[in-house]
Computed example of a mutant assay.
Amino acid sequence: MTRDRHDTTLDIERLTHYLKQHIADFRDPVSATKFAGGQSNPTWLIEAQGERYVLRRQPPGQLLKSAHAVDREYRVLRALADTPVPVARALHLCEDRDVIGSMFYLMSYEEGRIFWNPALSEVDRDARRGYYAAIVQTLAALHDVDPQAVGLTDYGRAGNYFERQIGVWTKQYRAAETERIAAMEALIDWLPAHCPAQAHDKPDMQRPSLVHGDFRIDNLIFANDAPRVRAILDWELSTLGHPLADLAYFCMCLRLPSDGHIPGLRGQDRAALGVPEEEEIVAQYCALRGLPAIDNWPFFLAFSFFRLASIAQGVKARALQGNASSAQAHVVGAMVEPLAQLGAELIA
């Protein structure tokens, strides 16, 4: 992650006093540097006497219902601590909003590389396919976790995942709506009528999986010296649901324009880049999980664009209210209509 200049919005003295009481060997001097990434929950690097931690908090201001659930992030990190899924160590959850003004949690700082562009220009061409393979392996490992075995059977409702998600994100979108967008209206009309029938789901898909909800390349920390994922970041949208929602969400990077705020590979020569095609990514995932071919793939992609557009609309609304967590919030807000149009292309 890139970092902003030293941040003054945290009460360092009050935070230090609190963490000294709850984190072993937490000592002065303490500094906080805000990461520039992260539109949803503001995130800081906390340095204390040579030790490094990461703090994530809810943003200030009025929040949409169920949004910015840092307590859910903390819970899922703890649940996954002893699984093959790479995550940071969850150290402490503070639900007392009087400490810094909102709920927050502290986790370990994981050293590594974050890539902001799926073209992976920072690594050699011949290595890029290995990075994509590592991403898909990590996603398959996540979906193979048994929620019951890690104490997450109540982490989400079973069944009718897409119906419920479409309903939730339609409500979130309406609550943050600032103008009428024809492509969003088309998706809101089309998606509920084309949800995969529960009775026709593959047997391996009927058991609820833990889904990340925002699985994309810039939410992954890689080892500095190898195509290996060290940690999955930003679990705010995680729940129990349909694993293909995560797979399609990741595959959006192949369809997003290369010059957007969230850069993609649309129109680029992926063979020349050394990046696998969408069909290869889907086939690798299915092979790892022992799944047959996927029916109705355009639905999963259209749903992913719709949901990301709804998320961007929420960022846009917060920016207009003046309480978004990043200076780039207005740029994110401008993505709403283009994302909706990309989703609408899939249902035309």
Rank of each mutant, 00 (worst) to 15 (best):
V336L: 03
R228H: 13
H330M: 13
G260A: 15
L247K: 00
C286N: 04
Q284W: 13
W235S: 04
H242G: 03
D295A: 15
L256Y: 04
I281E: 01
A293K: 12
G274H: 03
G267P: 11
D246I: 11
N224F: 10
D259A: 14
I281N: 06
S325V: 14
V282H: 01
F250Q: 01
D269K: 09
I281P: 07
F303Q: 01
M335Q: 13
G274F: 09
G267V: 05
Q321M: 10
A287G: 11
L237K: 02
D225Q: 12
F222Q: 06
A319S: 02
L291C: 02
R230C: 07
I311W: 08
E236K: 12
F306I: 00
P298D: 01
A312W: 03
R266T: 01
L265T: 10
D259I: 12
A324F: 07
E337H: 09
R289P: 12
G274I: 00
L288V: 11
A283Q: 08
C253V: 15
S326P: 00
G241K: 03
A272V: 09
L247E: 02
V336N: 02
W235C: 04
F299M: 03
F305K: 02
I311K: 00
P276Y: 05
A272Y: 02
A319P: 02
P263A: 00
G267F: 04
A329R: 03
Q284A: 06
H261V: 15
A223H: 14
C253P: 03
E278D: 04
R230G: 01
W235T: 07
L247A: 05
N219I: 07
Q328H: 13
L237G: 00
L301P: 00
G241H: 09
S325T: 14
P276I: 11
G290R: 04
A272D: 05
F299N: 00
E337Y: 10
E279R: 12
L237I: 15
L247G: 05
F305Q: 07
R289C: 08
L237V: 13
S258L: 05
P263D: 01
F306R: 06
N323M: 01
P257K: 12
Q313D: 08
K316Q: 15
G322K: 06
Q313A: 14
L244R: 14
A287I: 02
R270S: 07
